[in-house]
Design a binder for these strands. Structure first.
Length: 180
DNA sequence: CCCTGATTCGC
DNA sequence: GCGAATCAGG
């Protein structure tokens, strides 16, 4: 049967946690899988938990940009008033985020479909590079994927999908290598 | 150029 | 309700 990747309770719940945890929409999308960051943002708004980082009133960033598609010179009202409103929200100090699986299960490490990457040694590994382990870490032949990693995550988009498969989907969802 | 979230609107 | 396209900004 086809598991339609929609906003199930589980996925919405995960979305909530990650968002409130300060994760960016693109990272959340990468971990959810099957959705774009736009989808995530859209959902976040629909859930009513948007406006995470609220700039203090008076900040240039507060300047509301409306009328993108519509050149209608609408009088600013609700939006601006809302922007002026006091912030009851106590800014929860930056949590380094409980972070997720540091390393993928050894099981898949062996089954890694090395194909796209160039593989680098730990010497050449940079912050922006995928840390997906390839080979036996105890041997000098050990390498990392080295592909362009999602900022904030240790893996490239390809390996992130493998490492962060939602438990719900994982059991039968094998679309690992087939995204856009 | 990389990224961020915000908004609109056709579906 | 959903999310691509778009916008605005860092």
């Amino acid at each position: 049967m086809e598991v339609s990747l929609s906003w199930t309770d589980e996925r919405v719940d995960l979305l909530r946690r990650l968002w409130e945890d300060g994760q960016s929409a693109s990272k959340i999308a990468a971990q959810l899988g099957g959705v774009t960051r736009n989808a995530v943002i859209g959902k976040v708004h629909r859930l009513g938990l948007a406006g995470r980082v609220k700039p203090v009133a008076g900040t240039p960033a507060t300047t509301r940009k409306r009328s993108m598609r519509e050149s209608e010179p609408e009088a600013a009202s609700v939006t601006e008033i809302a922007a002026e409103a006091p912030e009851p929200i106590a800014i929860t100090s930056h949590r380094p985020a409980p972070d997720f699986p540091p390393v993928p299960p050894a099981a898949i490490v062996d089954a890694v479909p090395l194909a796209v990457s160039q593989r680098v040694t730990i010497m050449d590994l940079r912050e922006s590079m995928c840390r997906w382990p390839m080979g036996d870490p105890t041997t000098p032949e050990f390498r990392f994927c080295g592909g362009r990693s999602i900022t904030g995550l240790p893996y490239c988009t390809h390996h992130a999908q493998i490492a962060y498969q939602p438990a719900a989907e994982r059991k039968r969802d094998r679309r690992v290598a087939g995204l856009r």
